[in-house]
């Protein structure tokens, strides 16, 4: 469960995110959309505790991110658009390291199925430099899932994946949601959001324009049309302009 009230992030005079409130329940997948510079990544980084919010409160799995950051972070996993890996740790050593950080006692029994699920089991002793970008992405995700997070944040999760990898990633997200995880993902791939998201939130210039289930948001911008896809909704909601 994610509960956010009045989230604001300022950089000097510039406000990247303004007074954002949202609620995502267990098993729900929220798609964060908006033009370039709308504040999607900033929002995700605030929600994941990477950068401090200028104002507002964030609760993750019942923990206040400001008051009890360690407990809140124990429940979350963040997947940046560019996989951040340690250059000199092999695939297996990455999982070993993350297991110690999160205190995952039986990590071998969890790690192996994850490696197999993401098809990198045969790369276990290779360094990131020897992996393709898609495989690095898979390793980053396997590391994030090792401790069984209840809240997952994905920033452009499909970047660099091949078609099979994209399908597997979508299935993986849906599988985690069905298992009760709370998921927020940011992407420009609107067809992905239509496939995996239960809810959508549209940001523009750091402000929320609309949120709700996909049918609710579509209905708001349908202008009486019976079927409107998310791309059309996005264009109408944002006026087809940047930021």
């Amino acid at each position: 469960m994610i509960e956010v009230h009045g989230l604001t992030k300022r950089y000097g005079d510039f406000t990247a995110v303004r007074d954002l409130s949202l609620r995502v329940g267990s098993g729900e997948v929220l798609g964060l959309v908006g033009p370039n510079g709308a504040g999607k990544t900033t929002t995700l980084r605030c929600l994941a505790g990477i950068i401090p919010a200028s104002a507002g409160t964030i609760h993750l799995a019942g923990h206040d991110l400001t008051a009890t950051p360690v407990a809140a972070k124990r429940a979350l996993a963040f997947f940046p658009d560019e996989p951040r890996l340690f250059e000199y740790l092999t695939v297996r050593q990455h999982l070993n390291f993350v297991a110690r950080i999160y205190g995952v006692r039986n990590h071998e029994t969890i790690a192996q199925p994850l490696l197999e699920e993401f098809e990198i089991a045969d790369k276990a002793d290779q360094l990131p430099g020897e992996l393709s970008r898609g495989m690095k992405q898979k390793l980053a995700i396997a590391c994030g899932l090792l401790h069984g997070p209840q809240v997952l944040f994905f920033d452009e999760p499909l970047t660099g994946l091949d078609p099979l990898g994209i399908r597997r990633m979508k299935n993986s997200i849906l599988q985690r949601a069905r298992a009760g995880a709370t998921i927020v993902l940011s992407s420009h791939l609107l067809h992905l959001l239509e496939e995996v998201c239960t809810h959508v939130l549209i940001l523009k210039k750091g402000e929320k324009i609309a949120d709700g289930t996909i049918p609710e948001v579509a209905a708001r911008f349908s202008q009486g049309e019976p079927t409107v896809n998310l791309e059309e909704v996005f264009l109408r909601a944002t006026g087809g302009t940047e930021g």
């Binding site: 000199y88 110690r100 995952v104 002793d125």
Partner: peptide
């Protein structure tokens, strides 16, 4: 030359101080 993985300097168990990781 091309990087290669190598043996860890010591065995890192899942329990214990995370700083040692």
């Amino acid at each position: 030359g091309p990087a290669q993985g190598r043996a860890a300097p010591f065995a890192l168990g899942a329990g214990g101080r995370p700083e040692l990781a």
